[in-house]
Design a protein around this nucleic acid. Structure first.
Length: 748
RNA sequence: GCGCCGAUAGCUCAAUUGGAUAGAGCACUUGACUACGGAUCAAGAGGUUGGGGGUUCGAGUCCCUCUCGGCGCGCCA
């Protein structure tokens, strides 16, 4: 309704300005800084003063007079009828308008939350965690921002598809495979034994025990645990990976395995090869693994690639569970192996060559490479070397090259010569349940299906086609800006300037650790990261998977759940049901975490600190959740006393009433949600939605103390307060659960 | 060197994209539950928006410049 009033009002102002001789007037309506000034403001008279050669106040007076007439003569069904007849000119020439409070509230109580469907699909790619170790808090920022973007887009009526890209054939997965196959087996067994206890009690050589446990658990489906705090495969890799990279630095022979494994991974494996068979072939004949590996590899058995696929899939499933705990769901898992296997790059390369966007360098430092020239683009002006290599001199495509192919597909522009879309095959990856907008996403059962890509286009389950977005958002941290620009430029030079503009890099700053947080990690985990005094004097310290410096997402969530549980128990006093407590603790932990990620501007480095993250009071998720719980409690109590009233009754009671300023502030605030969501999407600043929610909660908490409903002095006052809080309860619940993904617990 | 980002209260962050008196939280001081639940509220104190120029009716916001900090600028992904 607020939007409709503003729309009508701006039309009237446009018409009035036209009569004053202003050509193509642009009217921007604002909200006055203080409520006593009014509800809607127009500051446009000020900049017109010079052009019209009149004092701004005189212009404003004339405009308001015309508006007053329009309001008075507006038919009752017109949005203009929501405006109060008096308008004021204040300050140097601000026009301030007021709404008819009772009528506006009555309308807000009964208006359905409609969102007209917008044309064109939007594709959002986020999360994209390398499937070689557990998710850390930096990935949480990515997933939460991406997820909130998706929720806001859907609220605005956009059909939105969520993709989580899986780099399953890269060096980082290969590094973990190197760890399993070549790390000294005592070290490997120590790491693996912490998670796979059967390794400690088994028989035979240690490496064989570890690999056997891997295969047995993969077959049994026990690599991944959905119990928070129980270590599983991604935790094992979190330990293993830094040991591998460290060993690369000190052991040349060991380091040579990296390229061997990567080659083997790229060669792929036969689809019917089981992990157990792969492991068996790697360990067969009692030979030592190291001497057999190159032989096996040359034979093309695919055993190593099979192990890599198992590593990637198990980590991916861990990541899905981690994000599922926060209520983050996906539609599709595009795999890098399928981008290659399905020949995406081959086709994209043909298109790039045909359009002349790439050329083969004959000489110079890039001799033998296929490069894309960026020299003609102003975006890259001033660069010393404005060429980007897409195909290396050894014939292997770079990551950026693959990304161009993938982006073309996302935009629906990757087509075969006959014009048909060059598409993936698809296969179900997991079933999942998502019971409520902020509920935990649970895998393994449920009514929804998550798909993954395959290399076989004949595999095609029923359902909506993927890709082909009219707009594509890539949620990737700001350090990837340069390759993202290259991808965008490639789309442009291929002859799709509109699609290039519709390719949006949602860049956000990285998550780092405060030195205090790093020291706490070292002391609680008994580790030493070997940071210098100089490092520890910095404002923040970058996380590093290679060095093992980071906070695991699950570990943080587990700590939060534990702290929230303690807080609940302390408040509840006597014993409460443990299942109930777990549910509430989860809601509060997720609320605290998601709000912390959403409330900060995306352009600032998030220096993670445990004390900040574990705060439950003040400007935090739980503060917002408490406001929602409190509001609902009012209606519980009213219900017990038979005073709950009804929407219809309250609507009639408030229609002609005058609301005091405080209550009115809350009503108007609730009405501004859609405006804030639209601004957030336009600027990709979801701190706007977070702070909007905070503003509403704060207003409510203030009003709560002075506006008792149950003990209201009279029936009219009660229905007025009840109506306002009814509106708030619905609004805050919706903002928290549907837009921010923050669950509202039954009790706190 | 070139490019991008940041610098706002002691600390962590906002500021509706150029609007009216720069706001929250934490910490600090004081006060409020026989109450619709105190994860709350009321009050106090805390600011030359990094420095300096400029643009205009108006600048934390735009332009120039300087300082400090961070991140990019791979035949890595």
């Amino acid at each position: 309704m607020l939007d409709a009033v503003r729309q009508s009002l701006s039309e009237v102002i446009v018409a009035a300005l036209g009569e004053l001789g202003v050509e193509e007037p642009k009217v921007v309506l604002e909200t006055p800084p203080r409520r006593e000034l009014g509800d809607i403001a127009w500051a446009g008279a000020l900049p017109l003063a010079k052009a019209l050669k009149r004092p701004p106040r005189a212009i404003a007076e004339e405009i308001t007079a015309r508006i007053a007439t329009a309001v008075q003569t507006a038919p009752p069904e017109s949005p203009l009828a929501m405006l109060a007849p008096e308008t004021r000119v204040e300050g140097p020439g601000f026009c301030n308008f007021r709404l008819r409070r009772g009528a506006f509230l009555a309308h807000a109580l009964t208006a359905p939350a409609t969102a007209a469907a917008e044309p064109g699909k939007v594709v959002v790619e986020h999360t994209n965690i390398n499937p070689n170790k557990a998710a850390h808090i930096g990935h949480l920022r990515n997933a939460v921002l991406g997820d909130v973007l998706v929720r806001c887009l859907r609220r605005l009526g956009h059909r939105t598809e969520v993709q989580n890209y899986v780099d399953d054939t890269g060096v980082q997965v290969a590094d973990v495979v190197v760890g399993f196959l070549f790390l000294p087996e005592e070290e490997l067994a120590t790491v693996a034994g912490r998670v796979w206890h059967e390794v400690e009690s088994g028989h035979g050589p240690l490496r064989a025990r570890v690999l056997a446990a891997f295969a047995a658990r993969e077959k049994a489906g026990t690599l991944v645990s959905d119990v928070l705090g129980e270590p599983d495969f991604d935790d094992l890799c979190w330990d293993l990976y830094p040991r591998v990279t460290h060993r690369y630095d000190v052991d040349e022979v060991f380091a040579a395995h990296r390229a061997e494994v990567l080659h083997a991974v790229e060669a792929g494996f036969p689809p019917d090869l089981t992990l157990a068979d792969a492991v068996f072939s790697l360990l067969a004949d009692g030979d030592t693994l190291d001497s057999r590996l190159s032989t096996l590899d040359r034979a093309g058995g695919g055993a190593i690639a099979r192990v890599a696929a198992a590593v990637a899939e198990a980590n991916l499933r861990c990541h899905l569970i981690t994000m599922g705990r926060l209520g983050v769901a996906y539609d599709l898992l595009p795999h890098e192996s399928d981008i290659l296997g399905r020949g995406f790059w081959k086709r994209a390369f043909e298109l790039l060559r045909a359009s002349g966007a790439v050329r083969l360098e004959r000489e110079g430092k890039n001799a033998g490479c296929w490069v894309m020239s960026l020299a003609d683009s102003p975006e890259f002006a001033g660069m010393e070397d404005a060429d980007k290599i897409l195909v290396r001199s050894n014939g292997i495509v770079t990551y950026t090259g693959k990304d161009i192919a993938y982006q073309l597909w996302k935009l629906g522009l990757l087509r075969d010569p006959d014009g048909t879309p060059h598409d993936f095959g698809y296969r179900p990856f997991a079933r999942f349940a998502h019971d409520g907008p902020a509920a935990e996403v649970r895998y393994g059962h449920g009514g929804r299906e998550l798909e993954r890509t395959t290399s076989n286009p004949a595999e095609r389950p029923a359902g909506a086609p993927f890709g082909g977005g009219a707009r594509v958002f890539n949620v990737i941290d700001v350090r990837q800006s340069y390759p993202q620009k290259v991808v965008k430029e490639a789309i442009r030079v291929l002859g799709y300037p509109e699609a290039a503009e519709a390719s949006i890099h949602f860049a956000y700053e990285m998550v780092a650790l405060t030195p205090k947080a790093v020291r706490r990690l070292e002391s609680t985990q008994g580790l030493t990261f070997g940071l210098s005094d100089e490092d520890l004097r910095k404002p923040f310290i970058e996380m590093s998977g290679r060095r093992g410096i980071g906070v695991e997402a699950d570990a943080l969530l587990a700590t939060l759940v534990g702290e929230a549980g303690k807080a609940i128990a302390a408040r509840a006093g006597e014993s409460i049901d443990t299942a109930d407590l777990a549910l509430r603790a989860r809601a509060i932990a997720v609320g605290a975490l998601r709000y912390q990620m959403a409330r900060q501007s995306r352009t600032r480095v998030l220096a993670f600190d445990f004390d900040d993250a574990l705060a439950f009071e003040g400007d935090t998720g739980p503060y917002l959740q408490y406001s929602a719980v409190r509001a609902r409690k009012i209606f519980d109590k009213l219900g017990e006393k038979g005073l709950a009233g009804s929407v219809e009754g309250d609507t009639e009671a408030v229609r002609g009433a005058e609301l005091p300023d405080g209550l009115w502030d809350l009503v108007l605030g609730c009405a501004r949600t859609r405006e804030m969501v639209a601004k957030a999407v336009a600027s990709l600043e979801f701190s706007l939605v977070a702070s909007h929610a905070h503003d509403l909660a704060q207003l409510f908490h203030k009003l709560y103390h002075d506006n008792p409903v149950l003990h209201a002095p009279d029936e009219q006052t009660r229905s007025l307060r009840r109506a306002v809080f009814r509106l708030f309860a619905a609004e805050i619940g919706d903002i928290l659960e549907s837009l921010l993904g923050i669950p509202v617990p039954a009790e706190m």
